[in-house]
Design a binder for these strands. Structure first.
Lengths: 301, 301
DNA sequence: CTGAAAGCGCTAACAG
DNA sequence: CTGTTAGCGCTTTCAG
């Protein structure tokens, strides 16, 4: 009987109307993610994993782009609620109080990604940015580097960068021979930072970038000035983007578990939605990729 | 009266239920886009523009990723229809007959992007890949290059690449000293192609890549071998990704109107949906960015 | 201009 | 196990 009806439905090309179903069940099977920009491999990878994981179980991802602006993020969230999003995946741990309050009042399940924080009241699925930055500095120090420059994108709307910076500062201790450069999170930003670095009195022997994108800009500029990497200056990145292994020289960097993070966030959200399973923070493994752009410090002539 | 109700609604935090509205009006205000991968700046930019344009007018983008697989694309479209997508934006002009048939039967408005084709029955919003490839070859020829290698990603599921290749072949005429390399569309692919190129008997004086991503891999490999760009070999890309101006040397490439394309596609879809305005193909301007990676041919010693 | 009611297509609860 | 029915929250139509 059931079979005959199903067969007839198939023959008639019947497709259930999702709006009617959503209205009746009060479930839209839609989850929202808001990312600062799609135009960065690290977000692209993570969102790809979210989309795959969600759609494999019949859920739909709706995506909004905040341009790293807290106000835009909040506006986007309102729209997404109005569109029927059942849960939210936000990038980073710092968001406008209005947004958190809104999601709380609407009782929308919520996860933060790209960070791991034990203390957070809201579950965080990501990595320990502070520890990773510390590890990066330690890696440079193991190679004898004492004069290190740190390059990063805007601190204003990016708490991951702030946390990494804190970690780097801790690892560096009271060494005040460290140079810090805040630039645009872009290849051009990296280039500019490197230009400034070359103009300083005491050139650092290593440059740590909080994104491979910045590191690429740094490498391009150093090469254009005939500076050898890592012989003259070592360069280290963050993200482990696709090209970083193939670059010349290959880039020493930190591999972030972007895909795993997206999949886990999606999974936890769905379990929360379906079985009311409580969500919990997750510290995903990241690791240093030791490659060719970091070498031992060379003593100056 | 109207005002008092509106005020009360605001005070009570009333949000219309989108599912009920969709059910009642038979309109979801949702449009679907399917792209091969999100992890390529050129798609990321175009999708960002689609999302912005759509959401500015109260529409929602639902995104699916096909991994450049016609079957996955078709499956994704079915899901998207079941989710209530009202119209579709597909990348490229080549899709499974089943998919086109499906969208036709469901009477879903449809546009193709990333290509412009006068002859297409379905509106195409993009650029003339064949003409652009011709122009690229011509640009190299103007610099005296006669021995040219062409590097591109998989032809199997990418009609833009096929069209570009056709254009390049036409511009090259009967010159059979041209080398063609089909590789993975990645930095690693570019690296491999460059390795092969260096191993050929008669090294070309210029390498044209149908993506900046490939060009980056080519440049990395040439540099690792101590080959000077453009002195020893010229390199040309396609896409004009962010970093291409900052690379060392800066990459001569073709600027594709990715953002404009996304915005136009979204706009036409919405006009079609709202005013039944017929959609029409659009040939958007692309142009050669003359930069540092292409130089005059040097006669061999 | 305001108020009442039907119905969009589905699910869930309940009756036979 | 099958068949019937109420109702999800909105829009639209029609009556007052």
């Amino acid at each position: 009987m059931r079979a005959t009806v199903l067969a007839a439905a198939k023959k008639l090309n019947y497709v259930p109307n999702p709006a009617a179903r959503a209205l009746s069940t009060n479930r839209s099977k839609t989850v929202a993610a808001i990312i600062p920009t799609i135009d960065h491999s690290v977000y692209a990878k993570y969102i790809t994993a979210v989309e795959k994981t969600l759609s494999a179980r019949g859920y739909t991802l709706v995506l909004a782009i905040s341009n790293a602006d807290a106000q835009m993020e909040c506006d986007a969230a309102e729209k997404l609620i109005a569109m029927g999003a059942e849960a939210f995946i936000l990038t980073g741990a710092k968001h406008s109080a209005a947004l958190i309050d809104l999601l709380d009042r609407c009782a929308k399940p919520l996860v933060f990604t790209s960070v791991f924080d034990d203390q957070s009241a809201i579950p965080t699925i990501g990595y320990d940015n502070q520890a990773l930055a510390k590890a990066a500095i330690a890696h440079l120090q193991e190679h004898g580097h004492r004069d290190i420059a740190v390059v990063y994108g805007s601190l204003a709307e990016n708490d991951r960068t702030v946390t990494r910076l804190k970690g780097a500062r801790m690892a560096l201790g009271s060494a005040d021979n460290t140079l810090f450069f805040e630039v645009d999170l872009s290849v051009e930003g990296g280039r500019r930072a490197a230009m400034e670095i070359l103009n300083t009195d005491k050139r650092p022997s290593a440059i740590l970038c909080f994104s491979d994108v910045l590191a690429l800009g740094v490498m391009f500029l150093l090469q254009s000035q005939g500076i050898r990497i890592p012989l003259d200056i070592s360069v280290m990145g963050f993200d482990n983007l696709d090209w970083s292994r193939q670059s010349y020289p290959s880039l020493t960097t930190i591999d972030l578990p972007a895909s795993q993070m997206g999949a886990e966030a999606a999974l936890q959200i769905m379990r929360r939605l379906e079985e009311d399973h409580p969500m919990s923070s997750l510290d995903l493994p990241a690791k240093i990729m030791r490659r060719g752009s970091v070498g031992p410090v060379r003593h100056r002539p």
